[in-house]
Every structure is written in structure tokens, then in C-alpha cells.
């Protein structure tokens, strides 16, 4: 039975991939996840693993290894120790290229080979359900009126949430007290319990509390409204949330890409091999369901499009890091 499955798998892989590529994996592949088990990046990688397994997209077996130490830096360091090894695939967010700015690390962004981004996770501005603010504009005005009294909670320091808070402060003049907590779950509870005034959680992190009408979103940091039309509360769904730009906030767009990388010095064929597999993954119904369920924006980026995205995101974030004085060295 096992041999049969293996044979079918090999056969399927040959039929699917062989004609197009010279590079094929020759031993088990390691998925290096730059977060601890249960984190967003972990779910992202394990989801891809299960889709690949279900559709037999890769003939070799896949092992997932969590290396979340140092905010994920530990996982990205794999690119150094495994240079040239195309059997190590690294999963992350934009922290792949932003971490080396804020911490002294043994790798540089140039040590990594970008493969693809599969999704963009959205950021929303949330307040407590019974807060008096009807719109994002109103809230920001209230913060401006009393600088350094409103508490903005977020996950970690010098990471996406704090970067967004800094952008918001710089562009509107609203000064928050930023309080870093361990993760989106803890951040959500702090707002629901009324210990802080707002946060910028991803949809997925706060959907439960929105449903229970403990918190509500004011606006989404995306150029267009969210796609999902299902109602979350009795009256509102994701697509009913205005964009922050509509609300007159100057931060039009802030999204976190879910990214895949290879070490430096791998054959170009290998990069296309993985990019093609990931493209196929992004087209499966299971993947689309995952994207819908976690209210991310599905967008497949590879090659030059991905590089352009990185360059742009890098530029914007770097500006914030410089202003805040977070850059080390």
C-alpha cells in the first residue's frame, strides 16, 4: 500500500513537474518556520504543507521545523548555515528583510533568495465596543486633543504593529503610548478588558471578540475594502468596514506579506520550481478557503513583482525605523 502511494506520488509529480524543470528535490525538504508553533507564520507554512501533501505536488516528504527564537531571526539564519541548499525553504513575513535593521544579526537581506509571497495580512484599527468614537477620524482627533494618554497595544516591539502606530502618529500628529504584548491574542484581551484604548490587530486575531461585540473595527489600512461579505455581527461584515483613507487618515496602506524564501546560492531552477508549486498551492480550493477564513488578501507575488513589493515595503518601513531611531549599528 505504502509503495503504491509512493509510486503514485512520484508518478504524479513527474507528470506535473518534470517537463518544465531541471531541478527536482532529491531528499526530504525542510520547511523552516520563523515563528513558534501556533503563530501566524506557523499556520501559513503548515497549511501549505498540508495542501502540497493532499495534492501530491512534491514527491519528497516535507518536515516542518519551528525556529522562532529572536523574533524569527533564528530561522532566517538558516540561510547562512544552509547556503546553496535548496532543500531548506524558509517561511516568514516582512520580518525577513526588516529584522536586520533593528537587531544585530548574522545574516543580511542579500543572503536570501526571494521565492514568493502568497497572501497579505490586513491591519485594522480597533477600539472597545462601547467607546464613544463613531469614526477613525473622531478617534484620532480625541487622541490629538490629549497627547500621550491613549494606549495603543500591539504585538512585540519594533515590529509591524509598532511601525504602523508610528506611521499613524507621524502623519496625523496623534501621540499614543505604545504598549507591547506577547501576541495578537493577548493584545485583543487587553482591549476587550478595557486596559488599553485601541490596537491594530489582524482580522483573524480579533474576529471572536468582534462577534461578541466586545470590540469593533474603525477602519482598514488597505487601499480597497475587504472582500469578505459575510456578516460578522448582526449588522456588519468585513466589507462594511471603511478604509482608513475613506476616513481621512493619511496612512492609506499597511499590509504584511506572508513570504517564502530560499538560501543564497541556490540554482535558479530551484527558485522557479518552488514558485510554480506555490502558485499551484495558491490556486487550490483549500488555500482559497484558508484565505477566506483568516480574512487575508490572497495575492500571489513572485519574481520581479515580489522584488518590487519588497523594495517598496522596505523603503516605507526603513523611513519609520530611521525616524524612530531603531536602526542598530
Amino acid at each position: 500500500m505504502k509503495t503504491l502511494t509512493a509510486l503514485t506520488a512520484t508518478f504524479a509529480a513527474l507528470v506535473v513537474a518534470a517537463p518544465a524543470h531541471a531541478w527536482q528535490p532529491s531528499k526530504p525538504i525542510e520547511f523552516v518556520v520563523t515563528s513558534s508553533p501556533g503563530g501566524g507564520t506557523d499556520n501559513f507554512a503548515r497549511m501549505i504543507q498540508s495542501v502540497i501533501a493532499k495534492h501530491n505536488l512534491i514527491s519528497q516528504s516535507i518536515v516542518v521545523v519551528n525556529k522562532g527564537g529572536g523574533s524569527g531571526a533564528e530561522g532566517f539564519l538558516t540561510v547562512k548555515t544552509a547556503a546553496g541548499d535548496a532543500h531548506k525553504v524558509i517561511f516568514g513575513t516582512n520580518n525577513a528583510y526588516l529584522l536586520p535593521y533593528v537587531a544585530k544579526l548574522g545574516y543580511k537581506f542579500s543572503d536570501m533568495t526571494p521565492v514568493a509571497a502568497l497572501a497579505l495580512d490586513e491591519f485594522l484599527l480597533w477600539v472597545k465596543n462601547d467607546a464613544p468614537y463613531k469614526s477613525a477620524k473622531e478617534y484620532i482627533e480625541a487622541v490629538k486633543a490629549k497627547p500621550d494618554t491613549f494606549k495603543m497595544a500591539g504585538s512585540q516591539s519594533k515590529d509591524t504593529d509598532q511601525t504602523l502606530t508610528s506611521m499613524l502618529s507621524a502623519s496625523t500628529g496623534a501621540k499614543f503610548i505604545y504598549v507591547p504584548f506577547q501576541g495578537g491574542g493577548a493584545v485583543g484581551t487587553q482591549l476587550a478588558g478595557g486596559h488599553v484604548d485601541s490596537h491594530t490587530n489582524n482580522p483573524n486575531e480579533s474576529i471572536g471578540q468582534w462577534k461578541a461585540e466586545q470590540v469593533r473595527p474603525l477602519c482598514v489600512f488597505s487601499p480597497t475594502r475587504l472582500a469578505s461579505t459575510t456578516k460578522v455581527t448582526a449588522t456588519m461584515g468585513w466589507s462594511d468596514i471603511p478604509t482608513c483613507k475613506e476616513q481621512g487618515l493619511p496612512v492609506e496602506r499597511f499590509q504584511m506579506p506572508r513570504t517564502v524564501w530560499l538560501p543564497d546560492g541556490v540554482p535558479a531552477d530551484a527558485v522557479t520550481y518552488y514558485a510554480d508549486i506555490l502558485k499551484k498551492v495558491s490556486e487550490t480550493p483549500e488555500w482559497k478557503e484558508y484565505i477566506a477564513r483568516t480574512v487575508q488578501t490572497g495575492q500571489f507575488l513572485a519574481g520581479d513583482a515580489f522584488k518590487a513589493f519588497i523594495a517598496n515595503d522596505d523603503k516605507n518601513s526603513r523611513a519609520v525605523f530611521e525616524r524612530e531611531g531603531w536602526i542598530v549599528k
Binding site: 527564537g69 529572536g70 531571526a73 547562512k80 537587531a103 544579526l105 516591539s157 507591547p180
Partner: peptide
């Protein structure tokens, strides 16, 4: 030792990669 989540800086790692994860 390792990442200090409140300040977001790496503490007491003395630039050894092995200590990065604490």
C-alpha cells in the same frame, strides 16, 4: 538572554548566533 520583547532588542547574546533564541 535573547530577544527582549518589550524593547525589541537582543540582550546578552554577545553577538553569538547560538544565543539568539535564548
Amino acid at each position: 538572554v535573547g530577544m527582549d520583547s518589550v524593547s525589541g532588542s537582543l540582550r546578552l547574546t554577545f553577538e553569538f548566533d547560538a544565543l539568539l533564541a535564548g
